[in-house]
Nucleic acid binder design. Structure first.
Lengths: 182, 182
DNA sequence: GTCTATATAGGGATAGAC
DNA sequence: GTCTATCCCTATATAGAC
């Protein structure tokens, strides 16, 4: 099993249990590797595992959410492509956001800068697209923030209500929020 | 120190560290009571402490967020009153939402039903107000959900970005989202 | 590279003095 | 009601065999 495959199995544990809840026992069970083997791959222990998870997710987002935004299609089509990436990433809202579960407690102390940077990049990228359509920078930024708030809020609602409908509605509303006058 | 005062000191620990991160040590430090004293007040241990916290918060929300919605003022004024309650409850976004931090990991298994019930109540209450203004039930419900998504999403953004602006903007937008055509 | 076995620290929880 | 002292278990992490 490659390191990538190992990390792919670690991710859902962090997403569903958070940093403190992602115990070495659960990580061991999720991967099928005993604890000592995990320490062989990640000498820095749990903290380094979380770092690897964050990096892996960053790359995935880059390729599946940001990349579609940078194609040569019309802005609306690029945003629709991004929406498909988001829907896949969050599995229609059923997979929690690492950004939000890692911004709690101990994990926040360890990774705050990195999380903040990732969020900023997402907002900046979205705002740039909106600006391309002729919207003022300040307005574009607010729309990008509104879009991310809606996504993050939808994820909370889905988690608590066990109903993916709010997420689907939120995704469907993104093009309107970003491109049309409110 | 009364039980209410103790609980008031316990709450921020759960909000900032989540259920698993809210260790008895931290709860002890936050209250100034040693662990054994906490067990005297809450014989059910940590789980019962969390229950007490959730109940206390439920009452607070009832009095400061729901009650204003039931006054005899105009719908818009009632919603503005609710917004003030929300702003106070979340300290302009600087205090995380218990609902969201408790819907992760072990805590979610323990309290899922209760959290789901609280969220449902909030949505139903908001939707009822919107319906009063002549909006169709389905539309009203979606607006209420949109409002809660925006709030929850704003809280994530504030936590990650250390910037309360998105929350303030979100709160300011609530009357529009609930009462005006989009 | 993966395992068993183990060390050390901290978690939740209780007994019993005051 | 609050404390000190302590129990047991699990968490993180390491040693060393295969």
């Amino acid at each position: 099993m490659s390191k990538e495959q190992v990390i792919a199995k670690l991710i859902p544990v962090f997403r569903h249990y958070g940093y403190e809840g992602a115990t070495m026992s659960r990580l061991s069970e999720a991967t099928g590797l005993k604890k000592a083997s995990l320490y062989h791959h990640f000498q820095g222990g749990k903290e380094q595992i979380a770092e690897a998870v964050l990096e892996y997710i960053g790359t995935w987002i880059e390729e599946n959410v940001f990349a579609p935004l940078k194609s040569d299609q019309a802005p609306r089509d690029r945003i629709l492509a991004m929406c498909r990436g988001i829907d896949k990433f969050y599995q229609t809202g059923q997979e929690p956001c690492v950004l939000s579960v890692m911004s709690v407690g101990e994990a926040d102390n360890l990774f705050h800068q990195q999380l903040e940077q990732s969020l900023k990049q997402w907002i900046d990228t979205l705002a740039a697209i909106v600006e391309e359509t002729g919207i003022e920078p300040q307005q574009a930024r607010e729309r990008a923030e509104d879009a991310l708030m809606l996504i993050q809020g939808a994820l909370v609602l889905v988690r608590v209500s066990n109903n993916t409908q709010p997420f689907q509605r939120a995704i469907a509303k993104l093009p309107q929020i970003l491109l049309e006058d409110q």
